[in-house]
Amino acid sequence: MIRPFAALLALAALFSAPVLAAPAADAAATPSWSIAIHGGAGTLQRKNMTAEEEKAYRAALAAALDAGAKVLAEGGEALDAVEAAIVLLEDDPRFNAGRGAVFTWEGTNELDASIMDGRTRAAGAVAGVTTVRNPIRLARSVMDDGRHVFLSGAGAERFASQRGLEPAGPEWFATERRRRQLETMKAERVGALDVEFKFGTVGAVARDQAGHLAAGTSTGGMTGKRWGRIGDAPVIGAGTWADDRSCAVSATGWGEFFIRAGVAQAICDRVRLAGEGVQQAADTVIGEVAAMGGDGGVIVVSAEGETVYSFNTAGMYRGRADSTGTREVAIFAGD
């Protein structure tokens, strides 16, 4: 029996209160650079994860965090740090982005990604890509080219070929675990959340030593998606936003609700126009998503380099680091 939509809304309501991030270890210190990453949010609980699985996820998050932090510590740009972190997450089959992406109803992997530069609000995004190893690199290439912001499907792949980006065949993206999830969904006639229990998206936000911000997001979407469905991850303003005047945001969650709320830009607009702190702004907007019946979370970095999380689910794969010595990775709400 197909789970009624109302039941999904009830599931979201169980975790309707945003989870606030703990303050940095040295709140008085202003970081010269900072970075935060995420690997998806959802019903992540210790009882559903073995010690070995938890250790592996934490190691993967730490590796991506360190890759981005290294760029920033060496004086690199926020855009490069965001890209470096996301590439590692896309290449890791544990996460629903790039390799390890979920399957569509037809049994293919369709990938979406976006990236944004807080200096100029230049942005690049791609959707429905099937042959590019790292969609975030393609989104970056679209932004750097500058003629367009959003490319999709075969056109995006032709552009990738012209730009010399590394291709990959279906065998690179496909994993047995994701295939089983699709088979379970079809056999038991259940929804995407019933087979995965989380929203699989990866992302990063960063502030570099020059004070510039950037954000990026990448995803394989939702298990069993149909008809070319596109969520919030590649939508500039919904899943990704960066503006040096306020903050940078990468989101993960029930994409339809995040698009309707314009989550990423809404958070930064509250910071810039209403003078709210990034934690308050993030919690307020995630609360609005919950009120509509959706759930998920965000990572945010402010113009001053403060990094925060906000999510209304039982957990979110996440991490952050900065020049003051903050370095942490976490999974569960209580971490």
Rank of each mutant, 00 (worst) to 15 (best):
A60D: 14
A62Y: 01
A62E: 07
A62I: 07
A63E: 14
A63I: 05
A63W: 07
D66H: 10
D66Q: 12
A67S: 13
A67Q: 12
G68M: 07
G68L: 04
K70G: 10
K70L: 09
V71F: 07
V71L: 07
L72S: 05
L72W: 08
L72E: 03
G75R: 08
G75I: 01
E77C: 09
E77P: 03
E77Y: 07
A78E: 12
L79I: 11
D80V: 07
D80C: 01
V82F: 05
A84T: 13
V87E: 09
E90I: 10
D91N: 14
D92M: 03
D92F: 00
P93M: 06
P93C: 10
R94K: 14
N96S: 02
N96Q: 00
A97N: 03
G98S: 08
G98I: 13
R99E: 04
R99W: 01
R99F: 03
V102E: 07
F103I: 12
T104Q: 10
T104Y: 04
T104M: 11
T104I: 06
E106N: 11
T108L: 08
T108G: 10
N109I: 02
E110C: 03
D112P: 07
A113I: 10
A113N: 08
S114D: 04
I115F: 09
M116F: 03
D117G: 04
R119Q: 12
R119Y: 01
R119S: 13
T120N: 03
R121F: 03
R121E: 02
A122Q: 09
A122V: 06
A123K: 09
A123S: 10
A123N: 06
G124D: 12
A125M: 03
A125L: 05
A125I: 05
V126K: 09
A127G: 15
A127V: 07
V129E: 09
T130E: 13
T130R: 15
T130M: 11
T130D: 04
T130N: 12
T131P: 00
V132H: 02
R133H: 02
R133G: 03
N134M: 05
P135E: 13
P135R: 13
L138D: 04
A139D: 10
R140Q: 11
R140S: 07
S141P: 02
S141Q: 14
S141L: 12
D144A: 15
D144L: 15
D145G: 13
D145C: 00
D145T: 08
G146D: 08
R147C: 05
H148N: 04
F150V: 00
L151N: 02
L151V: 03
S152C: 08
S152T: 14
G153F: 06
G153N: 12
A156D: 05
A156M: 12
E157A: 09
R158V: 12
R158E: 13
F159M: 00
F159W: 03
A160I: 08
S161T: 13
S161M: 13
Q162W: 10
G164A: 11
L165P: 03
E166Y: 00
P167W: 07
P170K: 01
P170E: 09
E171I: 00
W172P: 00
F173D: 06
A174E: 12
E176R: 13
R177F: 02
